[in-house]
Design a protein around this nucleic acid. Sequence first.
DNA 1: TACCTCCTACAGAATATCTATACGAAGGAC
DNA 2: GTCCTTCGTATAGATATTCTGTAGGAGGTA
Lengths: 110, 110
Amino acid sequence: MRGGKADLLRGTLDMLVLKTLSLQPMHGLGISRRIEQITGGVFQVQPGSLFPALHRLEQEGWIKGAWGESENNRRAKFYQLTAAGRRRLGEEKRNWAQVALAITKVMEAT
Amino acid sequence: MRGGKADLLRGTLDMLVLKTLSLQPMHGLGISRRIEQITGGVFQVQPGSLFPALHRLEQEGWIKGAWGESENNRRAKFYQLTAAGRRRLGEEKRNWAQVALAITKVMEAT
DNA sequence: TACCTCCTACAGAATATCTATACGAAGGAC
DNA sequence: GTCCTTCGTATAGATATTCTGTAGGAGGTA
């Protein structure tokens, strides 16, 4: 990712991808564009970060890819969440909530 | 860090340390205990993570250490924020707020 | 033909963190 | 005196994720 906030994102990319795919199946660049658009450009997911992540997620069995055609008649791999992926997303969400709360506590300490 | 949430924290350790030191000068293990206590054990900063981080921060000129005596008469290095460190903390805070907001946006997308 | 965009892919580097281990000194037990 | 625990700092080596840079095929257009 990019945008100067790169380092703060370690470990959240998986969650963001899973969440994005939970809305609808999508191909790689589509996911990337979606995330960038939603965050108003704060997150910019580079191909070199995204594809390794997708392969990792597929390896773990959380998403599943199938070749198809993009909106522009290009060969593209569409990914969708598996049942395990849906469970995983739930875990990551809970995790994130806990972490965000913990950080907030420290940052507000006096 | 530990507690299962380790990976979500990459990049936030510096900020947490700076914030902790902004309250009062402290030695390494003190910082570690402080963070663990405030977060109710959610974050557990291991010595092997903390000390390299402290050295990094000192290298950057954001904190400054001086040898002294701990509450238990042990030799300990007390760190305090520099002016640059205070500015840096401000940046990290704004950064974090922006990132947290961006993640929230993605996670709430429909 | 030439060129641009779309889409995927991988190699190599950078970097922060984790695990594990080490060491010195203080203090109490006995 | 000696043992053991706690305190406090330190480093080496492994791990893993992400970044940078590069590559290439395929479709569309002129």
